[in-house]
Amino acid sequence: MAELSCHASMMTTSKDAPPREDLAKGLWRQNPVLVHLLGLCPTLAVTNSVANSVVMGVATFFVLVGSSFLVSTVRRWIPNEIRIASYILIIATFVTVAEFGLQALVPDIYKALGPFVALIVVNCIILGRQEAFAGRNPVGRSVLDAVGMGAGFMLALLIMGSVREVLGSGTFLSVSLFGPRYEPWVIFVLPPGGFFTLAFVLLAVAWHKQRQTARARARATDEAVLVERVA
C-alpha cells in the first residue's frame, strides 16, 4: 500500500529485457493500479462515468509520457540533489498544459473532473516512473515504459468507469443499455460505490492470482511426482 506509493523503486525491468517487456509490463503484470495500488485517488474519484475515466486516463497518459520523455532527455544535466524538484517542475508544467487543453476542448468534462486534473501532479505513478525509470534509462525505453504504465492506468480507469457507469446509470458512454425500465444502482456513482467497486476489482484480481498460484503449485507437484516415478 502506501509504503509502496511514492517510493516506487520497484517495477523495474532488467537492463537486457526486450523493449516489448518495457511496454507490456505496465499493462497487466505490473499494473500500477491493480497490482501496485498506486494512484488510487483518481481511480476512485473520477470513474463514475466512462467519459470521465477516459478523459482522465488520456490526460494522465499525456503527462506521464511527456514527462518521461523530457526527463530521460535532460537527465544528464540534472544534478542529483535537485532531481525530484526538477521532475515535479516538469510534471507540473505538463499538467498545466493538460489542464488548459481540457478546459479548451472538453469544458464539461473538465468541470466534472473538478480538482483531479490538477491533482495529476501528485499522482504517485508519474513521479514514481521518473524516479524509478525515466531518470536512469534512455529516451526510447523510458517512453515505452511510460506508454505501458499510462495504458495500464487507463485500463484500470476504464474497468472502474465501465462497472460504475453500467451499474450506476445503466448506460455506457451515456448510451442506454437496458432500456427505460432498468433501475440504476445509484450507489455505484456515489463515493461508497467507488470504494466498493475497487474492492471488488481487487478481490477479483486476488482471486485470479490465488488460482494461478494454486495451479502452478499443482503442476510443480505433478512434475515432482513424475520425476520421482521416472527415477
Binding site: S86, T93, F100, G101
Partner: peptide, 30 residues
C-alpha cells in the same frame, strides 16, 4: 543548482505562457 533550476523554471514558464496563450481564447469562448 540554482542556475539549473532557474533555467528549468524559465523554460517551464515560457512553455506555459505559450500554452496559456494558445488555449485562452478557446477557454474564454467556452
Amino acid at each position: 543548482l540554482l542556475v539549473t533550476l532557474g533555467a528549468g523554471g524559465a523554460v517551464a514558464g515560457v512553455l506555459l505562457v505559450i500554452a496559456f496563450g494558445l488555449t485562452l481564447p478557446r477557454i474564454e469562448a467556452n
